[in-house]
């Protein structure tokens, strides 16, 4: 028997598996459009709510969504967190703000970065707009939008977050 100090209790055994991932028909359509700089959601034929990014169904009604709805790149902070730990393989330096954002005309939030702001001044209901990467860097990816930044519009009352028309605050 080996010394207990020398006892091996584990070995490194990396597993590499390669997948050809497909996002789905609806997400693929979304990604095709975002490559052109367009934010495209889908409307549920039953409850009329607009989903972005779309997944091909309305999760509440369980029916396929097909009607495309073009949305502006303005939205509202539904909630947020200030992250103090680095994300692996990501150049963003903590602390940074991750927010649940709802685009005008959409009825559901998605997660993105919030920047060009004092972290301590970020608040629920705050108005924001996308800051895009240079056009030549656009790909089939959500991070064509580098981050969102606050804009000079009055906050949205909490009860109206997720219910604004595509025309936004003034609609």
């Amino acid at each position: 028997m080996a010394d207990t100090a020398d006892t091996i209790t584990g070995i490194e055994c990396p597993v590499y598996l390669q997948y050809h991932f497909t996002a789905g028909r609806a997400p693929a359509r979304f990604l095709t459009r975002i490559k052109e700089g367009v934010l495209s959601g889908q409307r549920c034929p039953r409850c009329s709510n607009v989903y972005i990014p779309p997944r091909g169904s309305c999760p509440a009604c369980g029916v396929p969504t097909e009607e495309e709805v073009e949305l502006p790149d303005k939205g509202t902070v539904q909630s947020f967190t200030v992250v103090a730990i680095p994300i692996p393989n990501n150049p963003i330096k903590p602390p940074f703000v991750v927010a649940n954002l709802v685009l005008d005309g959409a009825n559901i939030s998605f997660i993105h970065l919030l920047s060009e702001c004092e972290n301590s001044e970020v608040r629920i209901g705050q108005r924001v707009q996308a800051v895009w990467k240079p056009r030549e860097e656009w790909g089939y990816a959500m991070d064509n939008i580098r981050y969102f930044r606050p804009i000079d519009e009055p906050d949205v009352p909490v009860a109206q977050i997720g219910k604004l028309p595509v025309t936004g605050r003034e609609g």
């Binding site: 996002a23 789905g24 028909r25 091909g56 169904s57």
Partner: peptide, 27 residues
């Protein structure tokens, strides 16, 4: 190969089909 379809898009047509067989609307 199911091409671009994701899980939801693969499942939904089969769900709709069994709903129709017994005459119900959804889950």
């Amino acid at each position: 190969r199911a091409g671009a379809a994701n899980e939801v898009e693969l499942i939904m047509p089969q769900l709709q089909a069994v709903y129709a067989q017994v005459g119900i609307d959804n889950a």
